[in-house]
């Protein structure tokens, strides 16, 4: 059960900003095809690298304030947070091998 879990405005601080391990936030929406395509890949990464990196999902329709705060203008956007700061941004759906390359420093 370590597939990517949803995060909201209420839980963002605790789950993402105060996490002791890197957190990958998947900014997504229901109507976004590429977001749905990359979803299962992120679930796999969440399971395979549990303990090294946390993977959570933020629905930009439901949590638009956070999306605006982080300047999201294209989805899917994947932000990696370390100690509360965005250290890496990947925009667009990428195949698993390419994503793992992007996340190499964190896993």
């Amino acid at each position: 059960m370590s597939a990517a879990q949803p995060v909201t405005a209420a839980t963002f601080d605790e789950v993402v900003l105060k996490s002791s391990i890197p957190v990958l936030v998947d900014f997504w929406a229901e109507w976004c095809g590429p977001c749905r395509a990359v979803g299962p890949i992120l679930d796999q990464i969440s399971e395979e690298y549990a303990g090294k990196i946390k993977v959570v999902k933020l629905n930009t329709d439901e949590e638009s304030a956070i999306a605006i705060k982080y300047g999201i203008v294209s989805i899917p956007t994947l932000n990696v947070y370390v100690n509360g700061e965005v250290v890496k941004t990947v925009v667009g759906a990428k195949p698993k091998p390419a994503l793992l390359k992007e996340l190499a420093a964190f896993i």
Partner: peptide
Amino acid sequence: LSGRGVSWCATCDGFFF
């Protein structure tokens, strides 16, 4: 600036503008 205002897909990104 791709993904930061440059896009090739209106249905994907138009929503944010």
